[in-house]
Simulated assay, not measured.
Amino acid sequence: MSAQLIYDLVPPGSIIRYSDGTPRPPERHRKKLSAWQSANGGGRVIRKTPARQTAQYSSPAQFTLHEGDYGSGGVIVLRVHKSFSVDSGLKFVVVSRPAPGSVQVFDRAGEGADLVHLAASRQDAEVWLQTHGYPNAVLEPVSADTVAADHVEGRAA
Results as ranks from 00 to 15, higher is better:
Tyr18Lys: 06
Ser2His: 06
Arg108Val: 02
Pro11Ala: 02
Arg52Met: 12
Ser14Cys: 01
Pro100Ala: 15
Gly41Arg: 01
Ile46His: 03
Ala144Cys: 07
Val138Asp: 12
Ala99Trp: 01
Gly133Cys: 03
Gln62Ala: 15
Ser59His: 00
Pro50Gly: 09
Gln130Ser: 14
Asp107Ala: 13
Arg52Tyr: 04
Gly21Leu: 07
Glu67Pro: 01
Glu67Leu: 15
Ala149Thr: 01
Val75Tyr: 14
Ser72Arg: 13
Gln4Ser: 08
Ser19Pro: 12
Pro135Cys: 10
Gln56Ala: 15
Arg17Glu: 13
Asp107Gly: 14
Ile16Glu: 01
Gly68Cys: 08
Pro60Tyr: 02
Gln53Ala: 03
Ser2Pro: 06
Gln56Met: 14
His117Ser: 11
Glu126Gln: 15
Gln56Arg: 14
Glu153Tyr: 06
His117Gly: 11
Arg155Phe: 14
Phe106Glu: 04
Gly13His: 09
Ile76Thr: 15
Asp8Tyr: 00
Ala144Asp: 09
Asn136Gly: 04
Lys48Ala: 03
Arg17Ser: 12
Ser143Asn: 00
Lys32Thr: 04
Ser85Asp: 13
Asp150Thr: 14
Arg79Cys: 05
Trp128Asn: 05
Val77Cys: 00
Phe63Glu: 04
Ile46Phe: 04
His29Tyr: 07
Leu115Gly: 05
Asp145Cys: 03
Arg122Gln: 12
Leu115Met: 06
Gln56Asn: 13
Gly154Cys: 06
Arg24Thr: 07
Ala156Glu: 13
Val94Trp: 10
Gly41Ile: 05
Ser38Ile: 01
Pro98Thr: 04
Pro141Thr: 10
Ala3Thr: 07
Glu126Ile: 02
Gln104Tyr: 00
Asp124Leu: 05
Gln53Asp: 13
Pro25Val: 08
Ala119Leu: 10
Phe106Asn: 08
Val152Lys: 08
Leu139Tyr: 00
Val147Leu: 02
Lys48Leu: 09
Leu139Trp: 00
Val138Asn: 10
Ile15Asn: 08
Ile46Asn: 07
Arg108Ala: 10
His132Cys: 06
Val103His: 06
Ala119Lys: 03
Arg155Asn: 14
Asp20Ser: 10
Gly21Asp: 08
Ala149Gly: 01
Trp36Arg: 06
Ser72Phe: 12
Ala149Arg: 15
Ala149Lys: 07
Gln123Phe: 00
Val152Arg: 12
Arg79Trp: 11
Val138His: 10
Ile46Tyr: 08
Glu67Asn: 12
Lys82Leu: 13
Thr146Trp: 03
Val142Ala: 09
Pro23Phe: 10
Lys82Ala: 10
Ala144Arg: 11
Asp107Phe: 09
Ala148His: 03
Gly68Lys: 02
Val75Trp: 13
Asp87Trp: 03
Thr22Gln: 13
Gly71Phe: 00
Leu129Thr: 06
Arg24Ser: 11
Lys31Cys: 02
Val138Ser: 13
Gly101Gln: 08
Pro60Leu: 12
Ser96Phe: 07
Ile15Val: 11
Pro50Phe: 07
Leu5Val: 04
Gly68Ser: 08
Ser19Gly: 11
Ala3Trp: 12
Pro135Met: 14
His132Gly: 03
Glu126Arg: 14
Leu78Ile: 04
Ser88Glu: 08
Arg97Ile: 11
Ser96Met: 05
Ala61Ile: 04
Thr49Trp: 03
Tyr134Asp: 02
Ala35Leu: 13
Lys82Pro: 07
Leu118Gly: 02
